[in-house]
């Protein structure tokens, strides 16, 4: 029984147990999918299949291996792109946080890249990298890298000053300071940046597949739209949104489990 609970009168909204959470989620999911089904049956448009039609199409796609093949194609540029963005992004962002000259040079340009609609440049990419894998990787990097750089940079600049001073007071060298204090202290936020980078990467890879040449999920979407098999098209889109949500959700879980034990504890109690 916590003493603070009684003393400070604020009671947080009753932390719902796991069971009630599941019930709420189920209601919520049923409501949304139910509305989808009804809207599809009316139908609000000939290009709007019902939920069940979409799920049937999805099931068929999974069974005949089309979906697995599409994901294999889509994940290649996504993983390579996010990998490159993560490696270089964290490196650049961290050095921006550590060295004023790098920060001076880098901060404005990355802020511009983060705020600007970089997607506009994707058509240009094809001129250099053609229509193959490299172009799609490049599209992912363009969208994912700025947020990773900026988050790493902010994480390092906001590292706890009193921890750094503590390290200095025990005669830690600059290298020790960076390796033992600054980077570990910054890692939760750097990881959060990677998660945002993955989300941006998803947008990039889908855009590239729709805009440059249809491959993977983008191909499923484009092809089924062109032959008016709308249920299949919706199934592909449904699957990629679900896939992105699950991936990002898992990254968030990992973030809480490994980097923010204090939040995990609070959530669990």
């Amino acid at each position: 029984m916590s003493r603070t609970l009684v003393d400070s009168v604020y009671i947080p909204p009753e932390t719902s147990s796991f069971d009630t959470m599941i019930i709420w989620r189920t209601i919520s999911v049923l409501f949304v999918f139910g509305s989808w089904e009804i809207a599809g049956r009316i139908p609000i448009s000939i290009a709007f299949p019902t939920f069940f039609e979409t799920m049937t199409a999805l099931f068929e796609m999974i069974m005949d291996g089309r979906l697995a093949h599409a994901y294999f194609e889509t994940l290649k540029p996504l993983l390579v792109g996010v990998g490159i963005s993560a490696g270089f992004g964290v490196l650049i962002g961290t050095s921006m946080g550590l060295y004023r000259s790098v920060q001076w040079l880098g901060e404005p340009i990355f802020i511009v890249m983060q705020a600007a609609p970089m997607a506009a440049l994707i058509p240009l990419v094809t001129f250099v990298y053609g229509i193959g894998l490299a172009a799609k990787v490049c599209a992912v990097v363009i969208l994912a890298a700025p947020i990773i750089v900026l988050n790493s940079y902010k994480a390092v600049t906001n590292a706890n000053v009193s921890l750094i001073q503590m390290c200095a007071s025990f005669q830690g060298s600059r290298v020790q300071q960076i390796i033992r204090v600054i980077i570990p202290d910054a890692s939760p936020m750097i990881f959060a940046g990677l998660r945002l980078g993955v989300a941006a990467g998803f947008i990039g890879v889908i855009l590239a597949e729709l805009l440059i040449t249809p491959t993977g999920i983008g191909d499923l979407i484009t092809y089924h739209r062109s032959v008016a098999e709308y249920a299949d098209m919706y199934a592909a889109i449904f699957s990629i949104i679900l896939f992105a949500a699950v991936t990002i959700g898992l990254l968030e879980k990992a973030e809480i489990a490994y980097f923010r034990p204090e939040r995990k504890k609070k959530k669990g109690s």
Binding site: I206, L207, L210, R225, I237, I240, I241
Partner: peptide, 11 residues
């Protein structure tokens, strides 16, 4: 908030 909304544009 974090979904690849670009995939919804065809719909």
């Amino acid at each position: 908030a974090s979904a690849p909304l670009s995939s919804l544009v065809p719909i």
